[in-house]
Design a protein around this nucleic acid. Structure first.
Lengths: 237, 237
DNA sequence: CGGGTTCTTGAGTGTCCTCAATCCTAGTGG
DNA sequence: CCACTAGGATTGAGGACACTCAAGAACCCG
């Protein structure tokens, strides 16, 4: 579903007001920037487990997740799956560096997103370089983060992996002790992300529960009972 | 050891001949480009296990490895080490995206390298954008590669990890069946890279030997007896 | 309310790690 | 030139952790 670019001409000079903060002195937000190419964007909906783009597809769009969660994964010859990362509401998702998508993007639940043609985003990025960094090719947004996950997977035992995952979710949501985390993804998604089995994910959640670090009222929620205890287990980020 | 920039003025216009192939029609090589900022570079030597730069140091230089091999690693609170990647002779190494080095760089054996001030490289990159991609912040040179290693560490058993490592070395050296690979790094380096123990690395090498895939004349050489067998074990790259 | 999917828990097994001993190699000093 | 030594490499035995297989529980959807 390619979008006509005629609505906005993307080869002209950049609006000068963008270089400076807004008229009221507040700095321009990501939204302010993206609004500029709103004319060439389109809103999309996907149902649970639907594919947004497949590995190898031309990477000609960049997406902004409005609601829901997306998983970025790769399928292997033997049918196994590896979930490289999750993209949450508010995040940008795309691979400007690559001609083709290096991963498959799938909807964890029902989701809404906005797609921007690559050309429009690159036009924007030429004048607002910060944009590039905000685009969550999450697999390697910074070398440090990539290292981090590599280490979690390689060197951490099961309980620590799950703790790291929960802490990351908590940080992402600015959750404090006692808050309830909504876990959008399935146990299988988590397992494939942390390179373990579903059973082990369950067991480690049960363990953290037994240790008093969390409460698990239902499969899609976790209450952070003792965030400090979790952070001790988790790898610092 | 900051290098004076006065030898080369890096704020002038870019030499026009760089935009086009050389006078004889051959495209300009990486060396041709780097020669332009040769004046601000300096040659360095390090002995085995010496530190080139430490994690957290300001990333104000980019390096080109002339001879030897470098390992990029992180040290953890509990004293463990994770080797994110190796950088080989001919590769560039640096972190233009980061203000501080996210990893420690150490000499695997005695090495020679050339350091370029960050400012000089960024001046160069402005006109020869390909340079950026050639700079081996190997941890994430492409999202796909980072994913690859993540998967090897997360989902592959010990023998497959070692096979993947050997295949990568073989590819890097354009080695064919029957060729001898020189393994510059120690078993411990390999173990910390593949997230296993030294003992398991040895055992897996012995296993691949027993399977007829390789011959191990000594600790620092491997003869590729059956490259196809190795590739079957390894993750496709 | 029933069927299906997902989650959870249990039992047994295999892989890899830990600990320990030995071998090999390179470097050193006599 | 050779014995000695120290560090790394290799091999073996035993144990811990996570996986596989399997069954039951909880949840969601029609």
């Amino acid at each position: 579903m390619p979008v006509s670019l005629s609505a906005v001409r993307n080869d002209g000079p950049f609006p000068p007001f963008l270089a400076a903060p807004g008229p009221d002195g507040t700095p321009l937000t990501l939204n302010d920037h993206l609004r500029l190419i709103h004319g060439s964007s389109s809103r999309l909906h996907f149902r649970r487990n639907e594919t947004i783009f497949g590995e190898g597809d031309p990477a000609d769009h960049v997406y902004r997740v409005l609601t829901g969660t997306v998983r970025l994964c790769r399928y292997l010859q033997d049918g196994r799956r590896h979930v490289g990362d999750f993209v949450f509401a508010g995040d940008l998702m795309g691979f400007l560096e690559c001609p083709h998508h290096p991963v498959t993007a799938e909807a964890v639940g029902d989701i809404t997103l906005v797609s921007y043609p690559r050309s429009a985003v690159e036009w924007l990025a030429r004048f607002a370089p910060g944009i590039r960094g905000r685009i969550a090719s999450h697999l390697s947004s910074t070398p440090l983060e990539a290292q981090q996950h590599l280490f979690v997977l390689g060197c951490q035992p099961a309980r620590e992996r799950v703790a790291s995952f929960l802490v990351r979710l908590a940080n992402r949501n600015d959750a404090a002790e006692g808050d309830t985390l909504d876990i959008a993804m399935s146990r299988q998604d988590i397992a494939d992300h942390l390179a373990m089995t579903v059973e082990t994910v369950c067991r480690m959640l049960a363990l953290l529960k037994a240790e008093g670090a969390i409460v698990v009222p239902n499969a899609s929620q976790v209450i952070l009972k003792d965030l400090a205890a979790l952070r001790v287990r988790a790898v610092e980020s």
